[in-house]
Amino acid sequence: MTVLKVRNVETYYGAIMALRGVSIDVEQGEIVTILGANGAGKTTLMKTIAGLMDPEKGNLALMGNDITGLEPDKIVRQGLALVPEGREVFPYLTIDENLRMGAFTRSDSIADDLELVYSYFPILKERAKQSAGYLSGGQQQMLAIGRGLMARPKLMLLDEPSLGLSPLLTQEIFDIIGRLNKEQGVTMLIVEQNAHIALETAHKGYVLEMGRIVMAGPAKELQDSPDIQEFYLGKSDAGERGQKRWKRRKTWR
C-alpha cells in the first residue's frame, strides 16, 4: 500500500520556484529519507505535504485520497503527523499536556498511546508534569516525536530530527525512530542533513538538489554511490597530496 504519493509537485515562494517537479512514493511500513543540502527544498517539500504550503502544480495523495490544497488540519485528520524542524513544543504546557495536544484530533481513548510513548521515552514520564520549556534539546525532540505519535498517524513526517543535537543524542533518537518503525510499524518520511545516520536508518532515499530529485534508490545503494559518499558522507579519497579541496563533478548514478 502506498501511503504517500507525491506527483510532479512545484512549490513557489513568491516568484522563486523552490520545488521543480518532485515525485516520491512512501510505502506502508517504510522509512524514507530525503537528503539534500541547505536550500535544496527539503523543508518546502515537507511543508507542501503537510498542507502548510500549497503546490502550484502537481498533486499529493495520502492513503489514496487526494490531499492537494487541503488545509493542514484536514490533512492531520486524514492521518498525517508532522514533527517540525526545531521541535516547536509548547513551552508553557507540561509534557503531559503537550502529548495530549498531539491527540487533539482523536476522540477515542488515548491512555494506551500515552503509555506507549512513555515506554519509548521514559525521561518524558519522569518529567511529565514539568513545563516543556525546561526540557533539554534532545528531550524536546523526543517530546515532539512523542506528540506526533499520539495522533496514531498513518505517516509521520520528521523534519531534521537531529538538528542541534549532540552526536550521541542523534544516535539515540534515530535508534528509537528505527524501533518505532520496526515494533510499531510507523511509516516515516525523514528529512535529514546527517546523511550517514539517515541512510543507516531508512529503507529508501531520495536526493534533492535545487528543487529536483537527482537520485533515488534503496538506502544501501545510495550509501554505495560515489557521489553520495563524497558529497553527503564526507568520504573523500584524499589522493597523493593527502588533502583535497576540489570536488568531483556530480553524476548521480
Partner: peptide, 17 residues
C-alpha cells in the same frame, strides 16, 4: 524533456525514471 514531463504531470524522480 524534464520540462515536457513537468508540464504534463508525468511523474518521474531521477533521470533514469
Amino acid at each position: 524533456v524534464e520540462k515536457f514531463a513537468q508540464d504534463r504531470q508525468i511523474p518521474f524522480s531521477d533521470f533514469a525514471s
